[in-house]
Each structure stands twice: as structure tokens, then as C-alpha cells.
Simulated scan of single mutants.
Amino acid sequence: MKASDLEVLSTESLCESTEHIDEMGTLEALKAINKEDQRVAEAVSAILPDIARLVDMASMRMKRGGRIFYIGAGTSGRLGVLDASECPPTYGVDSSLVQGVIAGGVEALTTSKEGAEDCLEEGANDLRKRGVSEVDVVIGLAASGRTPYVIGALSFARSTGALTGSISCVSDAGLSEYADCPIECVTGPECIMGSTRMKAGTAQKMILNMISTELMVKHGKVYRNLMVDVQPTNEKLVARACRIVTLASGCSPERAEALLEETGWDVKTAICMSVSGKSLQECRESIYAQEGNVARAIKSLQE
């Protein structure tokens, strides 16, 4: 990318409020950064309908057995890997359901590989290796909206019939041309010019949190606002499972633990049994019939 190309990107512009940050005192500098950070939530709020459209369309693919792929380079790629890696422990899903792909591979998570983002074909190759198909969803991440690696990935994804989305932090992003559901969250100049790990990165993190959270809600991983597919694999998560059953059903901690032991530490079934008063078998069958949605399973049992 030429210097003249960078000039048109709002993320590469000078931020007036921090133009003399090197001369500020510590507190003054932090206040300036914090003030700029407050603009991020406003920018995300402005494009919520675009995020909702992507979530709704992605949800339909997931119901057909599709997977979600986040793909990006540098900071954007790392954020995608982070969000994907949090889905299994939080929602009890298989690690293949939401996958993060970063230019340069796993090593690029901790070691900068800036040149990896410049190859169109590598983006396509990384998705080809994962067998992306028409049921899947590929979301390209690039603060600048023009990373070749990500464009190559989205172009390939489209050729397979996969649903494509993009998350950029500039207007009129080149990436948007390759996305069925483009998201352009304009965060403006960075406190340190071009350091898109800051405001742009924060915006991408917020958007990814929304996407993965709402997808999991839609697919029965949440009852009320409780993570009911949590896998109690350590002491903290065992305690959390008991607390979730207690909060969801109003039973005592002792009753919650007894129900969890009876169900083999299946949080959903324990909640269903406590609320509905039905047997383990009845609750399991109802949860299965309602595609894992606890609220609908309880309602069905009480009708």
C-alpha cells in the first residue's frame, strides 16, 4: 500500500485531541485516550441494524449445520481468534463451530507477521484447507477495509456459496464489496496515528462479542441471561453450574447440586427438572424436542 493510499483512511488521520500527547502528564493523557474511547460505543450503536442483519442470516446457516469463520490479519485476526476461542468454554460448543483464522497462522498470535496480510491467495488457501462450503459463514476482519489476505478469503468464500460478512472501521471499505453483510463501524483517527489496536480494535471486539453472544442465545445456549451449556470442568465452573441452577429455578444450592449430580452435571436438564417438577427423562426429551431451548422446553412441559 502506498503512502497516498493511507491518507484517505480515517484510521490513518491525525487525532487532534491527542496531537501533543507526548507533552501531557499521565492523567491528562489517559483522560484524552478515554474520551476518544467513548466515541467507540457511539460508532457501534450507529451500525446495530447491520450487525443484526449479519447475525440473523448467520443464524440460519448455523441451523443448517454451518460453521462461523472469523478471518483477519494482525490485530483484527487476533481478535477473531480470541472471540472464537472463548465460545467452547462459555457455551459448551465444539471448537469447530466458531473458528478464528489469522494470516501467518498460530505463530502470528504472538509474533508479528505483517507481510502475511499482503497475499490474496493465502486467505483463500486458509479457508480451502478448512473445507468452507455453502452452509458456512465467513466474516472478514480488517480495520482498514482493504487487507488483501482478507479480500482473498472473502472472494473464495463467495465462490463456495458461503455467507460472507465483513467488519471494517472506515467508510466505503473495499472489503464491503465482497460481503453479503458488510459492517462499517467508523471509529475515526486513533490516539496514536494508525494504531488500530486501539479504537478500531475495541470496536471490532465489541461487534464480535455481540455476534457470537446473540448467535449462542438464538441456538439455545442461554436461559434468561444464564450460560446453561457451561461445562463444569474445574472447581470454579462446578460452583458456577450450581449457582446457575439456583438462580434460574430458585432452588437451594443443595438442591441444585443434587439435581446436577442426578443429571450427570447437565445444567439445562437440572434447571428444567427444578422449574417444571418433571422427571429427568421427560425434561431431556422436551429439551431435545425444543432444539436445546430451555424456556420453550419448560413451557411445553407445563402446558
Rank of each mutant, 00 (worst) to 15 (best):
M60T: 15
I68K: 01
I298D: 00
E16A: 15
R243H: 10
A162C: 09
L175A: 05
A103S: 14
R128C: 14
A143S: 13
D172Y: 04
R61D: 10
R39W: 05
A43N: 05
A29E: 01
E214Q: 11
I207H: 02
K35C: 03
C181V: 14
V40D: 01
A153P: 10
E291G: 09
E16L: 12
N293Y: 03
I21L: 13
S168F: 01
A248S: 08
I33W: 00
T160M: 05
R158S: 15
G140H: 07
R255V: 05
A248R: 00
A52F: 09
G201F: 02
L141Y: 01
V275L: 07
L226N: 03
E254P: 07
R39Q: 13
V40R: 01
V81I: 13
M1Y: 07
E254K: 13
C181G: 04
I271T: 00
V150L: 06
G201Y: 01
M227L: 13
G72F: 08
F156C: 04
I207Q: 03
D22P: 04
R146W: 00
I287V: 12
Q38G: 15
S279A: 06
I51C: 07
Y223A: 03
E42N: 11
A297P: 12
V137E: 09
S279R: 09
C119Q: 10
A32W: 00
M210I: 15
T75H: 04
V186N: 12
E177F: 10
Q281P: 02
S17R: 09
V267Q: 00
L247Y: 02
L127W: 02
V101M: 03
K35A: 13
S279D: 10
Y288F: 14
Y149K: 07
V101T: 10
E291W: 08
T110I: 11
C251Y: 00
D56I: 12
Q204F: 05
E28K: 10
V81G: 08
T147Q: 07
V137D: 04
L6G: 12
T263R: 02
P88L: 09
Q204G: 10
V238A: 11
R240I: 04
L30P: 04
N234A: 08
D37G: 01
N234D: 14
E28N: 10
L226Y: 13
E262D: 13
W265E: 03
S252R: 06
S96Y: 11
G220Y: 03
E23I: 03
I244R: 00
C242S: 15
I47N: 05
L9V: 06
S85G: 08
S85I: 11
Q204N: 10
R197L: 12
D50L: 08
G174M: 11
S112M: 13
